[in-house]
């Protein structure tokens, strides 16, 4: 049984593409056949984060317009042969994605992949709407920050009303919160919303907490999804999140500040 998973957020810059790339690699590493699709038409970026930008020949809109076959457009990952990327088109025509086209392509993908990750653009316009429309599951990426939390609540509302499952009444989409750019130090000083705060405000538990980490920028610089950086705590946190999405029960790591000893507390660090 194949599953379509949308990675969405409403707000931009919270880590959708970084998360899509890492989640895709996480499932691939567990032996699943994975496709990851960039829905951000006009602003292609997933290819860069995945490190396959120089191998893009055909894109999502080419497949929709039947300029090529799906197989020709899917870029095989160099690290996992069970992982493929479908790049977004760089066209400025915002109507290039059609609902029928998206449905046809996703259905064709369902025949040859176990997991199809849809990397949504920011906002709640056409691209974001189509990225979530045919999803079975949703990962809502949220930062511990007021505008991101509010926007993710808007997106949760759309997931429960403006999707194929909601409109046909064929069961609700499984929703996961993924909290990114988390800083336990700032939470401890009362300057940042905590995991518990975000869960209470949105009424959902988190599937993972990704700590703020230098390695995320280093990973995108290199075109290697951060989950593949075994030394990175952000990478390890992504792997935990994917494990939980597969049904494993794991305690949350990296959400507490490293405790200072009594000596340090008295004499400072």
């Amino acid at each position: 049984m194949s599953e379509v998973i949308v990675v969405t957020s409403g707000k931009g810059g919270v880590g959708k593409t970084t998360s899509s790339a890492s989640i895709a690699c996480g499932f691939a590493r567990r032996g699943k056949k994975v496709a990851v699709v960039d829905f951000d038409i006009g602003l292609r970026n997933l290819d860069l984060i995945m490190g396959c930008e120089r191998r893009v020949v055909y894109d999502f809109v080419n497949v929709i317009n039947n300029d090529c076959s799906l197989k020709q457009a899917m870029i095989k990952d160099k690290r996992f042969d069970n992982l493929s990327v479908l790049a977004a088109s760089q066209t400025r025509d915002k109507d290039a994605l059609t609902q029928e086209g998206v449905e046809r392509v996703l259905n064709e993908m369902r025949e040859s992949f176990d997991i199809i990750i849809c990397d949504s653009p920011a906002g709640i316009e056409r691209g974001a709407h189509l990225a979530m429309y045919y999803a079975d599951r949703a990962v809502v990426v949220v930062n511990p920050e007021v505008s991101s939390v509010r926007d993710s609540d808007r997106v949760l509302g759309l997931l429960s009303s403006k999707t194929d499952r909601a409109e046909k009444g064929t069961g609700s989409i499984r929703e996961h919160l993924l909290l990114t750019r988390y800083s336990p130090e700032r939470v401890a000083t009362g300057d940042m919303l905590s995991v518990g705060d975000v869960e209470e405000i949105l009424g959902l538990t988190v599937i993972g907490v990704i700590p703020e980490s230098q390695s995320v920028l280093a990973a995108s610089n290199a075109g290697v999804p951060v989950i593949l950086d075994e030394a990175s705590i952000a990478g390890q946190a992504y792997d935990d999140a994917v494990a939980r999405m597969c049904g494993d029960e794991l305690p949350m790591r990296f959400i507490d500040m490293a405790k200072k000893g009594l000596f340090k507390r008295i004499f400072g660090s």
Partner: peptide, 18 residues
Amino acid sequence: KSAQTAKERLLIIVAQQR
């Protein structure tokens, strides 16, 4: 603390949105 203020504001606005 500012996080507490943020939480209180969000609880209100999210309830209104819902």
